[in-house]
């Protein structure tokens, strides 16, 4: 059984302009100790997916349906109390902006011990000892002094380390990281990614990492989910997604990325911009921007189906397999040729 099994998840927001279908039928699963990466552009629904799993959307304006089975129990229908016991203990989360994600008026030590004492019946000094242990584990120098500092006294990278320490303090089975390195500089990003991988080995947590950066996904993920306009358009093992993607949007993403390992004169560009989720296009949501568009794309929403030779790899596209294989091979070969 998968650790987390999400099936047909839908999150709709009621707004003054109408209903925004921020997540519209998303399914994926995460195995114990593995890393799943969700990539997509802004507005693709990747962050909302995770906030829904964590139950952090405002209840008044949100309509949720589908299933998110955590160890067999549905998180979406669970009582508030029961859910609270899982949140922060079995599933923990870190956020994009470490500058604003820590409470400015509390010492970091207090924020860490709060996380411990919410879930464990320990004394203050035991909690503090555990907090110190974690601050040391995430590589904060002189933790016994820094534990009594306030968040604004830390740099951005150090704050993200504090966030990670806080998330791992109860040995969670799943760590959800929402754009954990987007706000950080590239050398700090490398530090944080290395740290997360090291800690994953140590703690054995599964990681769900959400990012817009294909590089980050390629670096850390075992499995990849590509989201576009509130839906999953492709998912599969990281090797497949980067070596033989089967969806024109994924091709566009890979081609539009300037990269260090190849030189191109012109980037492949996806024309236009992502659709409004108030009123998404009929049929395949990518069809207005897709260079391979056919009549069927405008009418029918393609299902997420297994790619013929690999039951782990799914793609939602009406194109025939041969064309997809050919185009994917051409794209990847083009990159490789220029790389050498």
């Amino acid at each position: 059984m998968a650790l987390l099994e999400v099936t047909d998840l839908r999150t709709y927001f009621r707004t003054d302009d109408g209903i925004v279908k921020a997540v519209d039928g998303v399914s994926f699963s995460i195995e114990k100790g593995k890393t799943l990466g969700i990539v997509g552009e802004s507005g693709s629904g990747k962050s909302v997916t995770c906030l829904t799993i964590m139950g952090l959307n405002s209840k008044r304006t949100t309509i949720t349906s589908g299933e998110a089975l955590w160890k067999g129990k549905n998180l979406l229908t669970m009582g508030a109390r029961e859910f609270r016991d899982i949140r922060g203990s079995e599933i923990a989360m870190i956020f994009q902006d470490p500058m604003t994600s820590l409470n400015p008026v509390h010492k970091v030590g207090k924020q860490l011990t709060e996380a411990i004492q919410l879930h464990r019946d320990v004394t203050k000094s035991q909690a503090r000892a555990r907090a110190l242990e974690l601050l040391k584990a995430v590589g904060i120098p002189r933790p016994e002094r820094r534990i009594d500092d306030y968040p604004h006294q830390f740099s951005g990278g150090m704050r993200q380390r504090v966030m990670i320490a806080m998330a791992l303090v109860n040995n969670p089975d799943l760590l959800i990281a929402d754009e954990p390195t987007t706000a950080l500089d590239v050398t700090t990003q490398a530090q944080i990614l290395t740290l997360m991988q090291k800690l994953q080995e140590e703690f054995g947590s599964a990681i769900l990492v959400i990012t817009h950066d294909l590089g980050v996904v390629a670096e850390v993920a075992d499995e990849v989910v590509v989201m576009y306009a509130a839906q999953v358009v492709e998912k599969g093992p990281v090797e497949r997604i980067f070596k033989r993607p089967h969806m024109p949007y994924t091709w566009g993403l890979l081609g539009s990325l300037p990269r260090l390992d190849s030189v191109v004169d012109r980037l492949v560009q996806i024309p236009g911009s992502p659709p409004s989720l108030l009123n998404p296009p009929r049929g395949c949501r990518f069809h207005p921007r897709c260079p391979y568009v056919m009549d069927v794309c405008k009418a029918d929403d393609p299902a997420l189906l297994p790619v013929f030779d690999d039951s782990d790899h799914f793609a939602a596209c009406h194109l025939d397999h041969e064309t997809k294989d050919r185009e994917a091979a051409k794209l990847i070969a083009g990159m490789m040729a220029q790389a050498s």
Partner: peptide
């Protein structure tokens, strides 16, 4: 709506806390 409030909820803190 601050991020740190979301962080607190993500820690599993009850609403009154």
């Amino acid at each position: 709506n601050e991020d740190y409030v979301r962080t607190a909820r993500a820690k599993g803190a009850p609403e009154h806390q």
